[in-house]
């Protein structure tokens, strides 16, 4: 299974990672090799086998809905890349950029 540079560009855009042309080329190569490698799973007969999403067997884990102290306001603000008084500053969400899909 090989993946083209065009496909890498498309996935990188979906994954929000800007790649350089040389990275695109390199990832197309290594990802193709990895997809070939994992194709070994096609040998395995999985007809009727349930998929495993978790291993504990726990279901519907709940706890009492009680308000707890979470006094981290100062530290959370300090960890933000850009703030205005007590608010997180974010870039504008809407733009005319052609990059946006």
């Amino acid at each position: 299974m090989s993946i083209s540079i065009e496909e890498v560009k498309k996935i990188a855009q979906l994954a929000r990672i800007k790649l350089t042309p040389s990275e695109e080329k390199r990832h197309a190569g290594t990802i193709s090799t990895i997809l070939d490698f994992v194709a070994v799973l096609n040998e395995v007969d999985t007809e009727g086998v349930e998929p495993t999403a978790q291993v504990t067997g726990l279901e519907d884990v709940v706890r009492d809905d009680v308000v707890q102290v979470c006094d981290y306001k100062k530290q959370l603000l300090a960890a933000m890349p850009s703030i205005n008084v007590n608010l997180l500053k974010v870039p504008a969400v809407f733009s005319d950029s052609e990059d946006v899909i």
């Binding site: 990188a12 929000r16 990672i17 800007k18 504008a92 733009s95 950029s97 990059d99 946006v100």
Partner: peptide, 11 residues
């Protein structure tokens, strides 16, 4: 723009 912030920060 926002897309650029995401994709550059992650890159």
């Amino acid at each position: 723009d926002l897309f650029g912030v995401y994709s550059k920060s992650r890159a």
